[in-house]
Amino acid sequence: MNNIPPTVELETDDELFEHHRFDVPKGQSMLRIDKYLMQVVENATRNKIQQAATAGNILVNEQPVKSNYKVKPFDVIRVLMPHPPFEYLLEPENIPINVIYEDDQLLVVNKEAGMVVHPGHGNYSGTLVNALAYHFENLPMNSSERPGLVHRIDKNTSGLLVIAKTDLAMAYLTKQFAAKTSEREYIALVWGNVEEEEGTVRGYIGRHVKDRMQMAIFEDESMGKPAVTHYKVIERLGYVTLISCKLETGRTHQIRAHMKHIGHTLFNDERYGGHNILKGTTFTKYKQFVDNCFKVLPRQALHAKTLGFEHPITKEFLRFDTEIPQDMAECVEKWRTYSKSHTLEEEE
């Protein structure tokens, strides 16, 4: 057992994992989905199925449905749960890790974009946790039974993560993240000209009511968890803006959801619509330019640049900083060059 206090909540509990998927056959008669799932899911109970439906975790054709939904031929049914499938087993893998700091209590890694942090549906291998299990023995488990992880960043986000090597470090670092005393700064390229030089986005983050793979911002606290992001403009580049985001909280997709909420979706963030070219620009050359930027940066433009925390033993405040990776830097430079020779007024 680990020594994480039960009152400390790790910021990894909003993720959903696919446990079941069914393609309804052509000859299927109309049947309530709770009854259908009881027939096709081993050891399923109607009560558990109805609870999953109430939580919005049963999707038909990517839309959440109630337990009385009538299944039709060719429906695609997915059942999501907040924990990995039981068959999930962690296999150590000899994958290189970019470690920028290490001592006997912790290490700090600079994760490349494209690497998943921990195993989940469709990614049971090749993750950072698989690599950690190979390179380090007896890493402490967090409250979600994931070795070493104090926090995480998305697959296509690059940047810094701190990994605990002992139970003491896991508990101490987790408390800091929960108490908002850690320091986390991200660099993001967002669509649009952000009007204010700086600002704060607040709201309750929870699952989107229609798209369960997205997070959304709500005013009602019963719909999500409190989240706060402070942003500041670094550079205005015409149709996009380079910004700094500092987190008070670390919710799933926090920056991605917050930026969309204020009308400035991350550049090339497909999950949140950032892969669509900014409206109002129909010129062929402009579209070609943006498509070229997408090719240079085939992911959301987000990098975890700075990470700071108090060391669990020495009590020294450690701060680590990284440069934005080459793909993002090249994309920003393209926009910098483009904005010098084009203005919004000229193309609208």
Rank of each mutant, 00 (worst) to 15 (best):
D154G: 09
K210Q: 05
P82M: 14
Q176W: 00
R299G: 00
P147A: 07
V201F: 01
Y231M: 02
D291T: 04
H83M: 12
L161T: 07
M223V: 09
S143W: 02
Y88Q: 11
H20C: 15
D220F: 11
K315Y: 14
T249Q: 03
P298T: 04
G122N: 04
A44W: 01
H118L: 04
L149V: 06
T174E: 02
V41C: 11
H230Q: 09
I234L: 11
T314M: 10
L90Q: 02
M223Y: 06
S29P: 15
Q63T: 03
R152T: 01
D104F: 14
V108W: 14
T252P: 01
I4T: 04
V41R: 08
A301G: 12
K340A: 13
T282S: 15
F317K: 15
Y272D: 05
M30R: 11
V79Q: 01
G280P: 15
L168P: 02
I100V: 15
N68K: 09
G120E: 10
V190A: 08
H258T: 00
S67N: 05
V24P: 03
D220V: 03
L31K: 13
L16I: 07
K279W: 03
P96E: 06
K66P: 01
V108E: 15
K175S: 05
H342Y: 15
E93P: 15
M259H: 00
V60D: 05
K66F: 13
G308P: 08
I49A: 03
F317R: 08
L160Y: 03
P25L: 11
G120R: 06
P119I: 02
L168A: 12
E15H: 09
H342E: 11
T249I: 04
T249F: 01
E345K: 11
Y239W: 08
L132W: 02
N193R: 00
S29Q: 08
E197A: 10
A227L: 07
Y101T: 12
M30I: 11
V24I: 11
Y286W: 12
A53T: 13
W191E: 04
E219S: 12
E87I: 14
I324L: 08
E183I: 06
D269H: 05
L278H: 15
K72Q: 12
A171S: 07
K232F: 13
Y134R: 14
A55T: 07
E145F: 10
K295C: 05
E185P: 10
I153C: 02
I187Y: 01
M170H: 01
Y101G: 11
V194H: 00
A329G: 14
K260A: 07
N110V: 09
S158E: 05
L318D: 14
R251W: 01
D23K: 09
L344D: 06
F309S: 06
K175W: 00
N57M: 08
G120V: 04
L161M: 06
V129R: 05
Y338V: 14
K305R: 11
T45Q: 07
K180Y: 12
A164P: 02
V190F: 04
S158C: 15
R184L: 04
P325V: 03
L242Q: 03
